[in-house]
Amino acid sequence: MADSLGDDFAHAARLMCETQGRVIISGMGKSGHIGNKIAATLASTGTPSFFVHPSEASHGDLGMITKDDVCIVISNSGETAELHGLLAYLTRFAIPFIAMTKNADSTLARQSTVALLLPDAPEACSVGMAPTTSTTCTLAMGDALAVAVMRMKGFAKEDFHVFHPGGKLGAQFVRVRDVMHTGDELPAVAADLAMGDVLVEMSAKGFGVAGVVDGQGKLYGVITDGDLRRNLDGLMDRNAGQTATTSPQIAEPDMLMTEAMAIMNSRNISALPVLDDAGSFVGLIHIHDCLRAGAA
């Protein structure tokens, strides 16, 4: 089937990409179940799409289809009786539609704007009748169209996040700015602050870290629990600047949360200061924030 794709496939992808409306999918029985999945894949990848049941279409749901839309109509034989009303409607109002069928001489293929032919291969079941091979090929064709349209539209990871805010997929696209602590939550201290006062600030904010900043709010360094242990001898005679680790690992507001977590894991640290383009200490992200958001 992959080797047989040609101008018709490209034509179908262009119709879907250039439509001013939605991509409407229809099919009966097992073809309908496959159609629902194709519609869901298209919608999740930036092409507004939904499924219309052919029987319901003839009882009022044809009103869901407008002249700005393009349709994909699925029928292995190309002669499914329940599609007749839908095909008549599409033809009457000159609504372009893509046929998916194995029968090039079928009513569906002949009336379509463009026909995508499925292999005339036997079904995989023992009686050769249950939709198995045909539905698998239809699903693959639908996925191929979705991928082609994604590429034509320049659909990127950032766009994907818009339609997948939940679950593991959504967590992969959450950015540091979405979960970082800011404002009064930040454990920020001046370089000349005595370590006794630094300890009070670190305890109050509860992150196990403090950002040492200069008079302009730019980050000079960080003080972690590890720094406290390493400088325990004479600690209370020091100030923040003398105790801080300079040139620490940092995050940026637009960094993906998963990238920030990868830095923390690789360095065996639990928090990262977040700096803007000017180097100012604008946020803090803790590994617990990543875990709560589902990045792990």
Score class of each variant (00 low, 15 high):
residue 196 G to Y: 02
residue 281 F to E: 08
residue 223 I to K: 05
residue 235 L to P: 04
residue 294 G to H: 05
residue 276 D to C: 05
residue 224 T to N: 06
residue 281 F to D: 07
residue 206 G to R: 07
residue 209 V to T: 11
residue 184 D to G: 03
residue 216 Q to P: 03
residue 244 A to F: 09
residue 284 L to D: 10
residue 280 S to R: 15
residue 194 A to N: 13
residue 293 A to Y: 14
residue 274 V to I: 11
residue 254 D to E: 15
residue 197 D to A: 13
residue 232 L to G: 00
residue 229 R to M: 04
residue 215 G to I: 13
residue 248 P to H: 02
residue 289 D to C: 03
residue 235 L to Q: 06
residue 200 V to M: 13
residue 190 A to P: 00
residue 239 N to I: 04
residue 239 N to L: 00
residue 252 E to A: 12
residue 286 H to C: 07
residue 188 A to S: 14
residue 216 Q to N: 13
residue 208 G to H: 06
residue 258 T to S: 11
residue 189 V to A: 06
residue 264 M to T: 08
residue 249 Q to E: 10
residue 269 I to A: 04
residue 244 A to P: 07
residue 262 A to C: 05
residue 292 R to I: 12
residue 250 I to G: 06
residue 261 M to H: 14
residue 277 D to L: 08
residue 236 M to V: 00
residue 268 N to G: 00
residue 273 P to R: 09
residue 262 A to P: 00
residue 219 L to S: 13
residue 288 H to E: 09
residue 201 E to D: 12
residue 210 A to Y: 04
residue 259 E to K: 14
residue 257 M to I: 07
residue 250 I to R: 06
residue 229 R to A: 09
residue 295 A to L: 13
residue 236 M to I: 09
residue 191 A to Q: 14
residue 228 L to K: 08
residue 262 A to H: 11
residue 190 A to D: 12
residue 183 G to L: 10
residue 238 R to Y: 07
residue 283 G to M: 04
residue 234 G to H: 08
residue 275 L to K: 12
residue 187 P to H: 00
residue 273 P to D: 02
residue 285 I to S: 05
residue 195 M to A: 02
residue 263 I to C: 01
residue 239 N to H: 02
residue 243 T to E: 04
residue 215 G to V: 13
residue 276 D to T: 04
residue 247 S to A: 00
residue 200 V to H: 09
residue 235 L to I: 12
